[in-house]
Design a protein around this nucleic acid. Structure first.
Lengths: 225, 225
DNA sequence: GAGACGATGTGACACCTTCCACAACGATAG
DNA sequence: CTATCGTTGTGGAAGGTGTCACATCGTCTC
């Protein structure tokens, strides 16, 4: 188990070495390949997960089968925390977007940590507050922006979190298909594809396999408002 | 200050009498009339609020002036908690929908309580988790449902929280204008008005001044899916 | 290399929703 | 009582998006 990533995660940086090592004893390692699910909507579950490496998408399925992504999370981020405090079934499905390694923590073990080091609860509160803020943001975007605007915003957000400087811009290896990107912004694949094509045609982007290179971040940012 | 409502609120029910009375010493009373704001988007603020009586809407404003409601909250509910843990400006404006009385609690005072009774942090975590769950729900609705469906859903939700049995159905005194209801479901006032008119015409609803009476909750529920 | 299959690119059309326009209604102030 | 202003009720045009339909491309397998 690669504990370095965990040590650096906000939730644990404040912990003393002793508490932290006691905690790592309790962690369960989970490995997933693309498309594999950690849990599904409706499941019972009381486990909290940290992403050690890879990416996880949180999605919901409508009765008619359509899907919608709530978030795409990367290394260092956590999910499944709601099950710990709001005792109802999982309200989303968590699926690996790429090869992914997780560390799982059971409710009872987290309890122990919360007892011995209450500052962890503040960290958890912060994590939840941030997530709520992001979700509120997405909600406002859905109401205010058109599809191209939401695509631009999603790309910028992905760039912030997964982007790496390249020779001619920022490489965003999001590892999502256009179908998944469409589910993330709440639109059809076709419309997203046309939005992307327009951005490419304007010279703001270059498309690669499950990745984009942002060439003109200024214009893209302007279009996202 | 009417402390009965606070005593019953989930956040405080677990507190001992001593801790609770120490806490109430720290509360600030705030009275608002319809349209008055507690805080605005972009404000700095480190206060958490409980609704003693009345209703509060949390809204966001787009650069072009359009508005969008994140939630409408009633007695016993709390808001403004994100400012405590995610140290950035308010990302929403809180406005009274009717005559409203609030109890405000400053960050430093909450800290004190968290120290002496850590179970409060679990309650706060639960409150945030519930809110996140609700927001995720709204997000999915925006993607999956058409405007009439979202209106039906919003009415059912308001009925759950503010409804009272009446002679011929459930009276929902939401106190919102159709404009506000439209902002809540993320649609234009006109479209919402037409959806309501259709429901009335089908005999599912009766409209009253800033209220509705739900006559056929079954059909309405069916339409909301 | 030949299929096969998933992912991507693109056009046409239908439909829902917004936007604009205007009428009707109700409460409040003078 | 009347004028005003916010709210509600409705119709029609314009525009964005989803759906459908197919072509193209790439990768993996045999």
């Amino acid at each position: 188990m690669d504990i370095e990533v965990l040590r650096r995660a906000p939730l644990f940086t404040t912990l003393s070495d002793e508490v932290f090592s006691a905690l790592t004893e309790e962690l369960t390692e989970v490995d997933l390949s693309r498309g594999a699910s950690v849990f599904r909507e409706g499941d019972q579950g009381d486990q909290l997960y940290f992403i050690v490496s890879g990416k996880i998408k949180l999605g919901r399925t409508a009765p008619d089968g359509r899907e919608n992504l709530l978030a795409v999370l990367g290394p260092g981020e956590l999910f499944g925390e709601m099950a710990l405090f709001d005792p109802s079934p999982r309200n989303a499905t968590a699926t690996a977007v790429s090869e992914t390694r997780l560390a799982g923590l059971r409710h009872e073990n987290l309890r122990k940590v919360l007892k011995t080091s209450p500052e962890v609860s503040v960290q958890l509160l912060q994590a939840l507050a941030r997530r709520l803020r992001r979700t509120n943001e997405s909600l406002a975007d859905l109401v205010f922006s058109d599809v191209p605007g939401r695509v631009a915003k999603a790309l910028l957000d992905l760039a912030d979190r997964f982007g790496r400087p390249a020779t001619d811009g920022v490489l965003v290896a999001h590892e999502l298909t256009q179908e998944e990107l469409a589910q993330l912004v709440g639109a059809s694949r076709e419309t997203v594809n046309k939005a992307l094509a327009e951005f490419v045609q304007r010279g703001w982007l270059r498309l690669e396999a499950r990745a984009v290179v942002i060439l003109d971040i200024q214009r893209l940012r302007q279009r996202s408002r």
